[in-house]
């Protein structure tokens, strides 16, 4: 698979189609997010399978947004899995990236990873290889929903109470692109005072993720106390799908939650 990715990126770089490729690189024995601009560097390209499939994934779309904001005229390639491609689609919907500036180079995820993620579509449309896994059901959500309301509330409050307020879930999220975050507004959260009580932050963020979360699971992986945020956002996504028939990353056009007119 890596060979096919390298081959495709080489083609794009040599042909001058892209300025650089946002991917992952084996550096100092670690997997690092990296901008490839020379073909010679591609020997070090990896796809984020360090010890297990997909255990070294990074929010590459977030880096892509940074590059796009600095160089809006340039075109970049980006390494995507199924979830990342959903992210790109939704970032196009929210006008944070434009398709003409992005070339997605996709890889399919193995069944093991798809099952662990409960991923509905573990393969991108723009892929260097055929799908190798089928969509999986979100077992975590099914388990949680089988509980009674009281039990569910107790369980959520218990996990929220472990929060150390690192806000890493927000920082790593490739869909958190707002230039002004309500967490940093002095009017809402005065500087120097205690951060919001549990579970206010978690629930406000869950609402902000409605119609936005593309279910990549990076928040889950970044949480130092293992709060199952992904399960929460899957539920929020489910509600939006039922009410508005809109799934971020699957449906193109305009988000039903966007009240602004397109330019």
């Amino acid at each position: 698979m890596i060979e096919k990715v390298i081959e495709r990126v080489k083609e794009l770089l040599e042909g001058g189609e892209i300025k650089g490729f946002v991917g992952l690189c084996n550096k100092n024995g670690h997997t690092a997010p990296y901008l490839f601009t020379e073909v010679a560097e591609l020997d070090h390209l990896v796809v984020g399978d360090f010890q297990n499939p997909g255990d070294a994934r990074y929010p590459l779309n977030k880096l892509l947004i940074d590059l796009y904001r600095a160089y809006p005229e340039e075109k970049f390639g980006v390494l995507v899995r199924g979830c990342d491609e959903r992210g790109l689609n939704d970032l196009y919907v929210w006008n944070q990236l434009t398709p003409k500036n992005v070339v997605a180079v996709g890889i399919p995820c193995p069944q093991e990873l798809a099952d662990a993620c409960g991923c509905p579509k573990p393969y991108p449309d723009n892929s260097v290889a055929e799908p190798i896994a089928e969509g999986a059901e979100a077992q975590d959500l099914i388990r949680m929903e089988a509980l009674g309301v009281k039990e569910r509330f107790t369980q959520w409050m218990e996990v929220f109470s472990k929060c150390i307020k690192c806000y890493g879930c927000r920082d790593i999220c490739p869909m958190c692109f707002c230039k002004e975050c309500s967490l940093e507004l002095d009017e809402l959260i005065p500087r120097g005072e205690m951060p919001p009580e549990i579970p206010i932050f978690h629930l406000v963020r869950a609402v902000h993720m409605a119609g936005r979360c593309i279910d990549c699971g990076l928040c889950n992986e970044a949480c130092p106390v293992d709060i199952p945020l992904r399960t929460l956002y899957k539920k929020v996504g489910d509600i939006v799908y039922r009410k508005f028939n809109y799934r971020p990353g699957f449906d193109k056009g305009k988000s039903p939650l966007n009240v602004l007119e397109n330019k």
Partner: peptide, 30 residues
């Protein structure tokens, strides 16, 4: 990882393959 664009440090991202923090950070590190 510190993300450096044109000589300016623009972001922090925890190293997933580090055995110390396994892709997690506290608010100061972030």
């Amino acid at each position: 990882y510190l993300e450096v664009l044109d000589g300016k440090v623009i972001g922090t991202i925890p190293c997933k393959t580090s055995p110390v923090n396994e892709g997690k950070l506290c608010i100061k590190g972030w």
